[in-house]
Design a protein around this nucleic acid. Structure first.
Lengths: 342, 342
DNA sequence: CACTGGGATCTACTCGAGTCAACAAAAAGC
DNA sequence: GCTTTTTGTTGACTCGAGTAGATCCCAGTG
């Protein structure tokens, strides 16, 4: 065996690099790379063993930044959601993470806290970090995408019906979903159905409002009272109180998110009324919360896992450079007790 | 103005680099760096303006990988949590993200799905990516930290009472918190208090079980029935059913997490009993869910934001190389209705 | 015995940005 | 008017890994 200065071998100050491994194994740096990546050139079994040993003994870890620089990709995606404390977004984040991980990508998660300024900042940050793709669940109906375009980063708009030209999008048919729920409430005999609607940063009405309206019109019913608030529990609570205080208090309420519905339930309880006897409730999202609330919520379920899968697959792999796609997933009404079903 | 080949200026194929900016502005690459980073050397105002213009016009974005390579840091932290669909972890993730962002760090979020193998894989992956620090909320009582040690990555164990030598940790006093809740139930006159306890991957009992036991002993009460299940809603539901079926059915139940408690509530309702009249409930975590459940849960609140702040600050900044700290935060009993209070 | 073929390995350049030593030019001092 | 200082700018080297092209060596062939 070749003698070496013990300082070089036993006390590799700082992180171990490819060079250290090469020296220790008595080969060139190229061979180390070939062994680590299994290519692009063959390495003799004996040499490979030497290198593997050296790697193990020295505790070598390839520098990800260097690889990213050379390869032009850091195998990372960015996700921007309004608020990961909202179970629906939390689940979606989870699903996107899994879909990304399956393809060897890690996920940078950012919360915009429902604030436009914050969303912009995060997008800028992700662009600066040159992630390989961004999944954006915007607080806006018409998100600001200039930064992403400028950085030439593939992006997917999530849960958006708006079709931004040149951008991929995946979402559900909000209008059809809402209609499903409202029609179900109508089926229970309700004629005065209110809407607790969430608000986006740019105050654009989304398909859920339209669906509610359409369902009522189609059934020849008058449009019930409408209250706006955040998509979260407090927002639903406030909207619920508003609806209960309306002149024509509705006998059923459709909420634009499960979280809102949970706030609505609270408002109803505090008013001394009960669900579904006095007021029936249905909502949108299909999060786990809905199943365990009291009473369990009848809700329009979004295929979160499929959506996450579609979003990620549009960003990576062979689809990267294909023309942008707009995938709209169908929703499904999950019937539980809050609507009046047994 | 100097004439240039239009191809170089107007059609910068591929991403724009520092060199392109330098050429366009008619300066050296060093100056571009100085302008971008505001140092380390001064640049004449006129030159700076030229460079800024060039940057704007060409749409230059510094390559993060190159910077990371040179600087030895990618300004990124990793977070490993059991399950971001669990609102407590979701909130914690959110808090860690904010704390990291405040210091200019981005957050790689990973879910271990309560599986040890998955946790290991994520840790290995984060180590390979050479994040600047890892916040680990392990599924294990005694997590496997070799990978992190080997990669010399600063780490913080989260929500862990176990004091792993050489590692930072931040958590709450589980035992004291549990005692708080159980003592409160005792104060309501209950003498048979059951426990719905979560299970970790290595089946180690944590402080919450001990706190429950101690509180009962201190009051001279017999130890009530105990059921184990996951920390999530289904786990609590199962544990709740078990407790209700016990010979000595408890009149009060302490659950080791809010999610479990929500499952317990469901089990109780399905048994035709009501909370808190027939059975009182208290739990641990202090998540938003607890506030909006029915009835609202009396719960032991963890100072999530402070914990996240402490975890991140132990990883970055001047604390990086200080001896590991073990910060234990106090909990606070948030009294609502599930315990029997009005 | 010289000669080719091919497998194994090495040398050297590249990715893009940070920054220091060296240098030029302008300002200040005497 | 000639040094000194200051200010502004630059060339060149560095970080660590991927890999094309050159080189080396040995078995097999004519």
């Amino acid at each position: 065996m070749i003698t070496m200065t013990s300082s070089a071998v036993h006390t590799p100050r700082g992180p171990v690099t490819r060079k250290d491994v090469a020296r220790y194994a008595g080969v060139s740096t190229a061979v180390v790379s070939y062994v680590v990546n299994g290519g692009p050139k063959k390495v003799a079994p004996a040499t490979e063993a030497k290198v593997q040993d050296a790697i193990r003994i020295l505790g070598y870890r390839p520098n990800a930044a260097a690889r990213a620089l050379k390869m032009g990709s850091n195998q990372t995606l960015g996700l921007v959601i309004p608020d990961s404390s909202n179970p629906f977004w939390a689940l979606l984040g989870h699903a996107v993470e899994v879909a990304a991980a399956e393809r060897g990508y890690a996920l940078l998660l950012t919360n915009s806290d429902n604030k436009l300024e914050s969303e912009r900042r995060h997008i800028r940050n992700l662009a600066a970090r040159q992630v390989d793709g961004v999944v954006l669940a915007s607080v806006m109906f018409e998100p600001d995408l200039l930064e992403l375009v400028g950085a030439e980063i593939p992006s997917v708009l999530l849960n958006h019906a708006s079709i931004a030209p040149g951008f991929n999008s995946v979402g559900v048919d909000l209008e059809a979903g809402a209609r499903l729920a409202v029609e179900h409430l109508i089926g229970h005999g309700h004629t005065n159905i209110g809407l607790a609607m969430g608000i986006t940063a740019d105050n654009e009405a989304d398909g859920r409002e339209e669906g509610w309206r359409r369902a009522l019109e189609a059934a020849g019913l008058p449009v019930g009272p409408l209250a706006r608030g955040g998509f979260d529990r407090p927002g639903g609570y406030a909207a619920g109180q508003q609806l209960l205080a309306a002149d024509n208090r509705p006998t059923a309420i459709f909420a634009s998110s499960d979280m809102q519905a949970i706030g609505v339930l609270r408002a109803i309880r505090e008013a001394g009324l009960s669900v579904p006897e006095d007021i029936a409730v249905a909502s949108f999202d299909g999060s786990v919360e809905a199943e365990y609330s009291w009473p369990a919520l009848t809700t329009v379920e979004q295929p979160v896992w499929e959506m996450a899968e579609a979003a990620v697959s549009a960003l990576v792999g062979e689809n990267r450079n294909e023309p942008p796609q707009h995938r709209v997933f169908p929703t499904q009404l999950r019937i539980r007790q809050s609507c009046g079903c047994p």
